[in-house]
Nucleic acid binder design. Structure first.
Length: 336
DNA sequence: ACACGTAGAGAACTGGT
DNA sequence: ACCAGCACTCTACGTGT
């Protein structure tokens, strides 16, 4: 793969350099003022006369190649080519034999040649998706794409689901499980990781597997792949909520402290992170006399007022009990 | 208007068998 | 592997300040 890559890119570079040379030689003109020779100063984006210094054109656009390499040092500066994607079983890097039945010069092929090409296409396709894992992957990614479309999930979720599925495949989690089941579970996990969760019911509505198999498979792959679902840290919501509600820096700081003490007191386990963040913001607004209402916070955070009510008292209680014991050494596990 | 509490329903996870 | 129970959240409603 890397061989063909370097071949292609070096070709591209040569071609571009020769293009530049032609442009340069064509752009030699004569100065209308003094009759001297005119050159393009590409560094400054100007076309100037070398004799009298008259500027004929300025702010020229440099259409040449970039001189920096944005990927790896010393490699091609070319940006040509489609992006690779995990959504295709071969990362979108495969080649295909064209369908037009024309040769490289655009001439139509003879009947004999056409038959030959057709056979080649068939075999090429067979080799491309040769072993069972590749075929498996091809089918699964198709499923993921179909379900994601039906659920209106964005592309990054599909990418994530594809990656999860690939990991499941490479860790041999597939035997004994259906492709559709693992594909559905991957998508479910991906949607949750991307903070655009879909409920199990929504997923089973578009999936070919029933709800039980989905939950079973989902739990299995989460455990085996040690996936981090559930956005672990409530604090990551704080900044957004605080700015949308116009909470002061002081308030945001106190909210962060409330979450920290609550976590150390072990009262956050099992609670929804969004609810905790919302409650922390509300509680902090009370402490700093900023008078945010529960419904304001509820609107921005997307959790009910009831949840805020239930949580914010716990947060304040935890903060009070922690008042006397500023134990920094104690670190209780938040997850369990 | 806002804060607060409660009841009933539903969804997702956990543990027992 | 399956099922029942559980803790949590939501909606809806009523009450108090």
């Amino acid at each position: 793969m890397s061989e063909s890559e370097t071949t292609i890119s070096s070709y591209t570079r040569d071609e571009r350099e020769s293009d530049e040379r032609t442009e340069e030689s064509e752009s030699v003109r004569v100065c209308p003022e003094c009759g001297g020779s005119v050159v393009a100063d590409e560094e400054h984006g100007e076309t100037v006369c070398t004799d009298c210094g008259l500027v004929l054109e300025e702010d020229a656009i440099d259409r040449g190649p970039e001189w920096r390499s944005f990927d790896r040092e010393g490699e091609s500066k070319s940006r040509v080519g489609a992006p690779t994607t995990k959504m295709m079983h071969d990362n979108g890097l495969s080649t295909n034999i064209g369908w037009q039945n024309k040769d490289a010069y655009g001439n139509t092929l003879s009947a004999e040649r056409r038959q030959q090409m057709q056979r080649l296409r068939t075999w090429h396709e067979r080799f491309r998706t040769r072993d069972s894992k590749e075929r498996n992957l091809k089918q699964a990614l198709g499923e993921i794409d179909r379900m994601a479309s039906a659920l209106g999930l964005p592309e990054n979720v599909r990418e994530t689901a594809s990656v999860i599925y690939r990991r499941a495949l490479s860790e041999d989690l597939l035997p004994g499980r259906s492709i559709e089941g693992v594909a559905s579970a991957s998508l479910y996990a991906a949607a949750r990781q991307a903070n655009t969760p879909r409920s199990l019911d929504e997923l089973t509505a578009v999936s070919r597997v029933d709800r039980m198999e989905l939950t079973r498979t989902y739990r299995y792959i989460v455990r085996e792949l040690k996936l981090e679902v559930a956005p672990a840290d409530p604090a990551q919501y704080l900044a957004r909520f605080a700015s949308e509600l116009g909470l002061s820096d002081e308030g945001e700081w106190r909210a962060r402290g409330l979450l920290k003490t609550a976590e150390e007191a072990g009262v956050t386990s099992g609670k929804s992170p969004v609810g905790l963040a919302a409650a922390a913001v509300y509680a902090a607004s009370l402490l700093t006399n900023e008078a945010l209402t529960q419904s304001q916070v509820s609107d921005v955070a997307g959790v009910s007022e009831v949840t805020i009510r239930n949580r914010y008292k716990e947060l304040l209680d935890a903060a009070e009990t922690a008042e006397g014991t500023p134990g920094a050494g104690d670190r209780s596990p938040a997850g369990a």
